[in-house]
Structure formats: structure tokens, C-alpha cells
Design a protein around this nucleic acid. Sequence first.
DNA 1: AACCATAAATGTGTCAACAGTTCGATCCCT
DNA 2: AGGGATCGAACTGTTGACACATTTATGGTT
Lengths: 228, 228
Amino acid sequence: MQDEDVSDRRSETLGDEIFDRILDLIYSCELEPGMVVNESALATRFGVSRGPVREAIRRLQGIQLVSREAFMRARVVSLSPQAILELFQMREALEGYACRLATLHMTDEAIDKLISDLETAHALGPQADKTHFDFHERIVRASGNSRIVDSLCGDLYHLLRIYRRISGAVPERKEHAFTEHWQILRAVKARDAALAESLMRSHVERAGRQVLAQVPETRHPGAGGAER
Amino acid sequence: MQDEDVSDRRSETLGDEIFDRILDLIYSCELEPGMVVNESALATRFGVSRGPVREAIRRLQGIQLVSREAFMRARVVSLSPQAILELFQMREALEGYACRLATLHMTDEAIDKLISDLETAHALGPQADKTHFDFHERIVRASGNSRIVDSLCGDLYHLLRIYRRISGAVPERKEHAFTEHWQILRAVKARDAALAESLMRSHVERAGRQVLAQVPETRHPGAGGAER
DNA sequence: AACCATAAATGTGTCAACAGTTCGATCCCT
DNA sequence: AGGGATCGAACTGTTGACACATTTATGGTT
């Protein structure tokens, strides 16, 4: 084993390093949802002790990316349709409110900048996939509420990312998304907070339905999938 | 040291035990906001190794109750006025949405039960302090969204609890709160989701302003208080 | 052949010691 | 006397070994 070794960077702690490393393993689907996350195996693989690995897994558990109890083995979380619905509902609440705050707090210049960025990104087309979430992140960060930003961009983001490749696979959805993003920004520019929030909610809900419709038979072992 | 010893329960892991123990220390103000959380000191105090204590502190860091970076000592988080505002904003978004979901999903019987419980609790008066949050928790759980429930009742709840004794100290606020709770329930019973959500938001915002007005000069070291 | 009890094997929880960094105080220099 | 570098003390990060729980394999029983 030990295909990769850690030996260079020293700015951050080893636990942080391993945390990112395992995250990449999950993103690259080497650790698929439902698979067990073995402490000692990962430890020997990364060439470190079990301590940092254990710590990283605990952090992953903290942001709900792996499920684990007492002495059971940790597993990469596998979301049931119900869990996906709840995830998008929470995003709806938080991102809608963030959009409201952004409408109230953004400067006119920042709004215009965001509009132009959106349009140029859409004109480019190809890498519009990346643009999608950039828009949402921009709005969320513009809310000025760092707690909401952390929750959305730090925790939920990881979960969404696992299931996002599915929604990104639909081609004509992107055009819809662009239109909706543009409408939201119009409401923001008009300083209509209620409308902006409402539009954002609808937009997120639609995206959620999209994902939910395309992932009805993801593996969710134990007929639950929900953890903790 | 070692004023207390852990030797009986074995159902849960030691780390969980220590986690609850430190939480109690924070609630009982033995660990005030801003104070350092010393791994080895707590380890010898609880009569365990540093491992479980370390794990517990990491979990506390995960729910934002202690702040810590790289090799620095961990400290109990001390919220700046700005951070308190953001906390209540997040609660406003989440709890408002939860109220909306509850309005859509609760059965008529459950609503009537909640109304009668609220009124009897108000009639008793004395322990109305406990009732306050019970109401919110009841609504949140009635939403049926376990992710929102976990976030509100599991994470934010701990932070709010530290600063709640201040808001609870105001006497006539309780009467206000009861009236607002009652109005919210009327909207729920009328199945007016938009109104219920709006009322809940106003209610939470008012509570937040109350706390904010009474804690202008809490210690927030480093002229920031916000962590991470 | 199916089923329950038992035992090896795997994996997690805990511990005590070691290594590196930060914090605090002392000491030196201007 | 004030400011800054230096040394020591305290604390966090990391490690490898040990103890316990769970899972899997094995064997005896009905």
C-alpha cells in the first residue's frame, strides 16, 4: 500500500491534510456512498498513524458526510430520496433568506458586476456547469451573514456536490437555470427582497425536484439511508 | 484534581461522555465564553486520557461552541454582537421555514394538542421559562424535516442556550412571547403557511433584538469575537 | 440441512509517551 | 525604563501499543 505519501506541507496540521484527502476520495467516487471507511486501512495508505485519520473521519461525521455509531464501522452517507428532499428544503430556506439579505445589503455596483458576470459566463457556454454554483455562492456570500455562508458553502455544499453530477447531466436544464438566475438578479436590482427570496426558493426547489426525479433508485441500504 | 470519576455507564463511548460533561461545564458557566479549554487539564480532571477529551473538543468545535486553530489553545466561543445577529438571522430563516412546513404537514389533532399545551403552560406561569423553547422545539419537530430539526435543536440550540438566560430575565417579555406564540398557532390552524412563517420570523427577530439590546458589552476579545 | 453457540479475526476505543509549536517570563540591549 | 530577543514551561499534534466490541467463520446440536 502507501501509494501516496505526505511529506511536504507543514502549515496545517496532519488531520486537516487527511480530511481533504478523504474528501477527494469521496468526490472521486473511490469511496462511494454506502462504503465503509476503514481507519487503519486509510492510515497505512496515507502513511500516517490512525490518530489523524480518526480525527478527519470525525470531522466528516460532523458535517454529515459519513454516518457512524458507537463501535460500528463508519460509512459514507447514502442519501435516501427523503433525505435529499430534506436537504434541498433546508437549502431553500437558507438560500432564500440569504438572497433576501443580499437584496437589502448589496451595493448597486456589486449587483451590476454580478449581472455582467452572469451574462458573460452564459455567453461562454461550455463551462456553464461551473457557473451554476458560482452564482449561488456569490449570492450567498453577498448576504453578509457568515454563519449562513459557512453552513451553505461549507457543510451542505459537500453533500450537494456528491449528488450534483446528476443534475448537471441534464442539458436544457442549464438554460432554465440561466433564466431563473437572471430573473432573481432583476428582483435584486429592483430591491424587491420578498420577490428575490421567493424566486430563489422556487429555483432551488426546481433544482431539487430535478435531482430527485433522476435519482429514485440510488442505493440507500437498510431502507432508510438517513443516519445518526 | 480528579473531582469526578467516570466508571459506571458503558452504553456509549467515553468521548460522548466527556462531550456531555464539557457541555455541562459550559452551561454551568464554569467555562465562560472566552476561557481556554485545556485538553490535559480536563483529562486529569475527568480521570481519562487526552484522547477522548480531544475528540470531545473537536466535536464542540464542529458545532461552533469552541474556536480553535492549528496549534493554538481552544477557547469557548464568545459571540460578538454581529455574531449574535447572524445567529438569530439564521434561526429566523430556518425556524420560519420549519413553521411553514409544520403548517402544511401537521394534523388538526396535533395542532389542537399544541394549542392546549401552550395555554395550560401559560396558565401555570412559573415555569413558563421552560415553555418558551418547548414551543419552538415542538414547531420545529412538527416540520418533519429531520435535517432542519438537527441543525436547530442540535447545533444552534447550544449556542442560543448560552445567551438565553439574558433574554429570559425580562419579565414582560414572556407575555409578549405567549401572545406571539398564540398568534402563530392561529395561523397554523388556519393553514395559512405564508402568514405562519412571517409571524414566526417576526417573533424570532424580536427575541433576537431583545438579546442584542441587553448584551452590548459582552466580552468579545480581539475586537472580533467571531472565529474561524 | 438448518440453527444456535462458540471462537478466531477484524476494527474501533483508549491509553501513555514522544515530538513540535506556542505562550509567558526572564534577561539583555539601547 | 522601555522594547525586543531568548530561554524555559506548558500545551497541542502525532505515534504505536493495548483493551474491548463487533463481525465473520467454525463447529456442534437437533
